[in-house]
């Protein structure tokens, strides 16, 4: 079995994996990173979105062997100690989640969106999140949260890289 090295939320792991092991199952079943859920088979829902080498990726559609040598940040690695990432705070403030199952992926996708467009319009947020499905919120408050986080991050002069330093 291939041996891989992968850094997840700042911790480096060496694992022997079957080639077919999905990254999301490595995270959930092997590393206990259950904050990242699985919502579909076809990469439509985006619930499993993580940062893979600093860019959003759907961890259900990546093999663990493809992540060999990579840096992964999950929803569990966003906060610094007790301080949430501004996007986490904005989702709370704007009531951008109900059941919360899509939330980890939605937050990761939203953070990635702001990397390219630090002050997105409503339309840009909606299009930028087209790969992440939510069944509870009707997206209104998610859009508001992303734009609030954009403001907060701009005010704080923040463009933090979401990867392990």
């Amino acid at each position: 079995m291939p041996r891989i090295t992968v850094t997840v939320d700042g911790v480096t792991y060496e694992e022997e994996v079957e080639p077919r092991l999905l990254l999301v199952h490595l995270l959930r079943d092997r590393l206990g990173k259950t904050g990242t859920p699985v919502g579909c088979d076809t990469s439509n829902c985006g619930a499993c979105t993580v940062m893979l080498d600093g860019r959003s990726a759907k961890s259900c559609s990546v093999l663990a062997v493809q992540a060999d040598g990579s840096d992964v940040v999950t929803i569990e690695g966003l906060a610094r100690g007790d301080e949430w990432h501004p996007m986490q705070k904005a989702f709370h403030t704007e009531h951008a989640l109900q059941c919360g199952y899509c939330t980890p992926g939605m937050i990761m996708a939203a953070i990635d969106l702001l990397r390219d467009d630090p002050d997105p319009s409503e339309e840009a947020v909606r299009e930028g999140l087209e790969g992440n499905l939510c069944r509870c919120t009707g997206y209104c408050n998610i859009v508001r949260a992303v734009r609030l986080a954009a403001q907060e991050m701009a005010q704080a002069g923040e463009r933090r890289e979401v990867r392990t330093p």
Binding site: S43, G46, T49, L52, R55, S56, A57, K58, S61, V62, A109, D112, L113, G128, E130, G131, N132
Partner: peptide, 9 residues
Amino acid sequence: VADPAVRHR
């Protein structure tokens, strides 16, 4: 094509 996360890969 697809969505941003898919376009990254």
